[in-house]
């Protein structure tokens, strides 16, 4: 029997406003992540920007067990399209709803 993949959601805050609803921006973030974690890490972790959680925050879906690697990869990304930007991974959760609520409470 093939087990259903279990996901974890990571709330990420950027230091500058980002429109992750735009495919170009979200693909850029994923390609920067891929550069840090490598092709094998990408296939195993399978990170994906799932939704926007505020002006500067977004949520990344990742396979369970790889959220630490994603947090580490985000800490090495300091540049997006030539402008300096930092990413903080604030919280991980098993449910998307909880992170959206958390982001709303924090006023991100």
């Amino acid at each position: 029997m093939i087990a259903r993949p279990k996901n974890r959601y990571v709330l990420v805050e950027a230091t500058a406003p980002l429109d992750v609803g735009d495919k170009v921006v979200s693909n850029k973030i994923i390609s920067l992540l891929c550069a840090e974690i490598g092709a094998i890490g990408y296939v195993r972790g399978h990170p994906k920007v799932v939704c926007r959680a505020g002006e500067r925050a977004f949520i990344v879906r990742v396979n369970r067990g790889y959220e630490g690697g994603i947090a580490l990869a985000f800490s090495f990304i300091k540049d997006l399209d030539g402008s300096p930007v930092g990413f903080f991974t604030l919280r991980t959760s098993g449910s998307l709803k909880k992170l959206v609520e958390l982001s709303r409470k924090a006023g991100l």
């Binding site: 947090a71 580490l72 800490s75 300091k78 930092g86 903080f88 991974t89 604030l90 991980t92």
Partner: peptide, 18 residues
């Protein structure tokens, strides 16, 4: 030296694991 160079506690813990 600036906001974008900061790390969250979670990221710092991952760096410490590294």
């Amino acid at each position: 030296d600036s906001e974008h160079m900061l790390l969250s506690a979670m990221q710092m813990s991952e760096v410490s694991r590294l």
